[in-house]
Computed example of a mutant assay.
Amino acid sequence: MSTEAKHFITKEVRLIRCTHCSHVWQPRTEVLPKVCPNCGSRKYLEPRQRKTHTKNRRS
């Protein structure tokens, strides 16, 4: 067995998660995709906003 140190090549993998459908994928290029490949949402990077319900108030 050789006394040489073994060298490992590590590569950073970039994953993107859709905030709407929770789909995780690895993009093919460095450019961000325009839509989520699973649900087609264009706002896949924006956090989902809950609708706030306001009670009807009589004035």
Rank of each mutant, 00 (worst) to 15 (best):
R57I: 12
S41M: 00
C18Q: 00
T54A: 09
S22M: 14
P33C: 05
C39V: 06
A5R: 09
R50I: 09
P47E: 14
P47M: 02
K55F: 03
S59N: 09
C36S: 02
R50K: 10
T10W: 05
C21L: 08
L15R: 14
S59C: 05
C39P: 07
T19I: 08
R48H: 11
V24I: 10
H23V: 01
H53Q: 13
E30G: 09
V35K: 14
T29W: 06
S59Q: 15
P33R: 01
Q26W: 01
K43D: 15
T19F: 06
N38V: 04
N38W: 02
E46H: 08
N56V: 10
S2F: 09
P47V: 07
S59E: 13
K11N: 02
A5L: 06
G40C: 00
F8T: 14
Q26H: 03
F8P: 03
K34L: 11
T3S: 07
Q49L: 14
L45C: 08
H20T: 00
R50E: 06
V35W: 02
E4A: 12
P27L: 07
M1H: 11
P27Q: 03
I9F: 09
K55M: 13
W25T: 04
L45S: 10
R48Q: 15
C36Q: 03
K6E: 13
L45F: 15
R57M: 15
P27H: 06
T54E: 15
L45E: 11
H23T: 10
H20G: 02
E46V: 13
S59H: 09
R48A: 10
I16H: 01
R14S: 02
C18W: 01
V24H: 03
T54L: 13
